[in-house]
Computed example of a mutant assay.
Amino acid sequence: MNGRLQRLSSLFRWIAGPLLAVLAGWHWGPWGFVGVLLLFVVGPALAMLPGFLILRFIPPAPGLPVAPMGDLLQAWWREVVVVTRVFSWQQPWAEHQEPDYLPPPEQARGRRGVVLLHGYSCNRGLWNGWMRELRRRGIPFIAVTQEPAFGSIDRYAPVVDRAMRTLQDHTGLPPLIVAHSMGGLSARAWWRSVGHPQDRVHRILTLGTPHHGTLLARLGTTENAKQMRGDGEWLNQLARDEAGRWADHFDCLYGHCDQIVFPAETAVLPGARVLHLRARGHLQLVFEPQAFERALTLLEEPALSRAA
């Protein structure tokens, strides 16, 4: 369903744009055709720009930098590129281009695997680049699509649990979770649903996850968007259930140019290790080499004590 919705949206954009340009050309001549076509080509990029510029006026926590204008403009342009790639190709048309990788048991045993969790309104196609590189390195992985796309985050726990159990049964080791945005909350909700056992997960690397909510969620109307409101009961209950017992399992990668999860400090859990990136937008965090390198490092780290 997630991929089908994105395919319909992609088709509408690429069919409606040229069609309206032809109609404009018929009514207003060549300049009308060119003007409407340009609007469909550059309009989405221009529509993204205010989301970055507003970050100049949202003060971060003490000690964190206000994003310089140059960083915001760099982040905006990088984000335009990756958003176009992800929402025009990877997710609508290449969601299943890269299958999960479970090598033969004799190769997989003792080789820690990775579960990849996407964020809001995305699907597993987001991770195509990661999946190709993990397969090249012989690292087992499962990337899930969390559905229903706009349902409760708690409803994603069973599919996460299946992926975690499959990889652990196949390799003999608890997997690493790498999660973008809402996916980090899915990971936390899953761990709560199974009682926070220390032997079910190795580490959790979150990329731009709204651990403490995001101001943008106040505009959301879907159930999972409302759950990402910082003053909402869902996030507050999640934190109470955890009681700060296992933040040492987390690495939080974030940036001060994130136009979706802000203020910047909302993407960091107290007690977690933190990696801060400059001039990177929200989706760009997935494509950042430092994110993949951190995941490789975490795969090699020793297991934490069960008493942690």
Rank of each mutant, 00 (worst) to 15 (best):
G220W: 03
Q74R: 13
E106W: 04
R188K: 15
R13A: 10
R280H: 06
R111V: 11
P62D: 07
A225S: 11
L176Q: 09
V201Y: 09
E288T: 13
T297D: 06
L285Q: 09
S88F: 01
V66H: 04
F150C: 05
L117H: 13
R85S: 04
P104C: 00
I260E: 15
P68W: 15
T145Q: 12
W191I: 06
L11P: 00
D169W: 11
A308G: 12
G35M: 05
Q227D: 02
R4W: 12
P68S: 11
D231T: 08
W246L: 14
F87L: 13
F57Y: 13
N2K: 03
M228G: 09
L277A: 07
V82C: 09
G125M: 13
L11E: 07
C252P: 11
A189S: 15
V201G: 15
V86I: 11
M182A: 15
F292I: 01
V144L: 15
P50E: 06
E95S: 12
L11K: 01
Q290L: 14
R136F: 00
Q290Y: 01
F150H: 11
G113R: 13
P210A: 15
E223Q: 13
E79C: 04
C122I: 05
A264H: 03
W89P: 00
T214Q: 08
G125T: 12
L253H: 10
F250E: 02
H256V: 02
N123P: 15
M182N: 12
S152P: 12
Q6V: 03
E242H: 14
A239M: 06
Q290E: 12
F12R: 07
G172K: 00
G17E: 10
H212I: 03
G51C: 04
P302F: 01
G25S: 09
